[in-house]
């Protein structure tokens, strides 16, 4: 069997207002089922997905935060977050529920170079 392609998913949208965050997670979990190596980068409004304590029942949506917490169960543990985006939104690393490795712009360029397929949401 040929080597599996390394997939990078870039999340740039806030949760709930659009379906991007949910769609991205579906793709990630599906890739996980196929045992494909997945990395996920949260940048721009996508970093809001990492804030915890979501109670989405009153807007009729499923709790994205609880679903993200399951990523390690799918052996998806390569999570990254853009430091600049955190700073822009005034979020500290400690305020995030889901831990991710912080990357600066140069490291993000390298991350993209290191993957075979990049999907943006």
């Amino acid at each position: 069997m040929p080597d599996k392609k390394k997939v990078l998913i870039i999340n740039r949208r806030a949760p709930y207002g659009r379906s991007n965050a949910r769609d991205s997670l579906d793709v990630a979990l599906t890739c996980g089922v196929f045992e494909m190596p997945i990395s996920i980068l949260f940048a721009d409004d996508g970093v809001f997905q990492l804030i915890g304590n979501h109670q989405a029942g009153d807007i009729g949506q499923k709790n994205l935060s609880a679903n993200l917490a399951a990523l390690p169960m799918y052996d998806i543990d390569q999570l990254f977050v853009c430091t600049e985006s955190l700073n822009t939104h005034g979020l500290t690393f400690d305020s995030l529920e889901h831990s991710a490795t912080q990357l600066d712009q140069t490291a993000i360029q390298q991350l993209i170079q290191d993957h075979d397929v990049v999907l943006t949401f």
């Binding site: 806030a14 949760p15 709930y16 809001f48 804030i51 915890g52 304590n53 979501h54 109670q55 989405a56 009153d58 807007i59 949506q61 935060s65 305020s95 529920e97």
Partner: peptide, 13 residues
């Protein structure tokens, strides 16, 4: 709006 704040975990932020 309350429900949108709660959904995104922003009540205390």
């Amino acid at each position: 709006l309350q429900a949108d704040l709660a959904a995104r975990g922003l009540n205390d932020l």
